[in-house]
């Protein structure tokens, strides 16, 4: 418990604790608005919703007033926060003494957590690039014309579930995991445990090919390539299975390809996490140049 208190009282962790409550609130708010609209659409009130959307009001005073009040509230909050809580400053920089644990800024803890499961070139370079490019690609691969400009869930289930999974589960919860449950040696500590620098964790990770008894290096290389290739060719399997389905018809081949690649890459993270945590698998594909 002592330890949890320390983490919570760390000034730099305040935003994360705040984020927990803020996110719950905004997800609730979205759900309330979305279910309200969905119910109205189900009742056949779509024309009425549209008409309400056309109803115009003056920016001055209605919008400017809200903006002003919002700014005031934020500035008050910020001032109180700045008076009440000091930004941390530790000992002077010393390149020869690594503090334990060494954590990245909190907003990058999701990436740092990914480093446990993937080699740095994937977790630190390739995946962030794919996240950024993938986010940019969203408007061009989501061809669903519905749900433009209002909260809804029923009309775009797949898009919303995928985004919520990526944002809430893969990004935010990894940040929270990295903040609260990772201690010295980047070992896992329950919140009530004391951070023990000398905690010994038996890590008996093996590569997938070793677990399956493949010994030769070339064999491991080919085996890994097949596994990774098979994983990504799930996209083809689904394509030929649901070729005449609504989704693929709407998207076309190129969009479907990009979507499938991004989706499978995203799902590779939880899969690799499960393999590592529950089956102690380190690498899927080992080559002389890189490991996956």
């Amino acid at each position: 418990m002592e330890n949890l208190k320390n983490i919570l009282s760390n000034a730099d962790n305040v935003p994360i604790v705040g984020l927990l409550f803020i996110m719950v609130f905004f997800v609730w708010l979205w759900w309330r608005e979305a279910s309200r609209t969905d119910k109205r659409i189900a009742n056949g009130e779509w024309e009425q919703i549209r008409a309400e959307g056309q109803d115009k009001i003056h920016v001055w005073p209605y919008l400017t007033r809200n903006e002003f009040l919002c700014s005031l509230a934020i500035m008050i909050l910020l001032t109180v926060w700045s008076v009440g809580l000091d930004a941390p400053l530790e000992e002077p920089a010393n390149p020869s003494r690594t503090p334990n644990p060494s954590k990245a800024p909190w907003y990058f803890l999701g990436l740092q957590e990914m480093l446990v499961y993937f080699d740095p070139w994937i977790a630190g370079v390739v995946l962030p690039t794919i996240i950024i490019v993938g986010l940019m690609a969203i408007p061009y691969i989501d061809k669903n014309p519905k749900g433009n400009g209002y909260y809804t869930y029923q009309e775009r289930k797949f898009a919303i579930i995928t985004f919520l999974f990526g944002f809430l589960v893969l990004w935010l919860s990894l940040i929270i995991l990295g903040t609260f449950l990772r201690g010295p040696g980047w070992n896992f500590f329950a919140p009530w445990e004391l951070w023990d620098t000398h905690k010994v964790v038996a890590m008996v990770n093996v590569d997938l090919h070793e677990a399956l008894g493949i010994r030769s290096k070339l064999g491991a290389n080919i085996f890994g390539a097949i596994i990774v290739g098979a994983y990504f060719s799930l996209a083809f399997v689904y394509y030929f299975w649901k070729k005449d389905g609504e989704l693929i018809k709407q998207l076309g081949v190129a969009r479907y390809g990009v979507l499938a690649f991004l989706f499978l890459t995203m799902m590779a993270l939880p899969i690799k996490m499960i393999l590592r945590i529950f089956f102690n698998i380190k690498y899927i594909w080992v080559t002389p140049w890189f490991n996956v």
Binding site: L89, E90, E91, A93, P99, S102, K103, P120, A123, V125
Partner: peptide, 24 residues
């Protein structure tokens, strides 16, 4: 701020750039 917190957070962060495919 050039304290322990900053130098190590940035060390951890920029070390990923070592592993950039082709360029690291």
């Amino acid at each position: 701020p050039w304290d322990q917190l900053s130098i190590w957070a940035v060390t951890v962060g920029t070390n990923m750039a070592r592993a950039t495919p082709l360029l690291g």
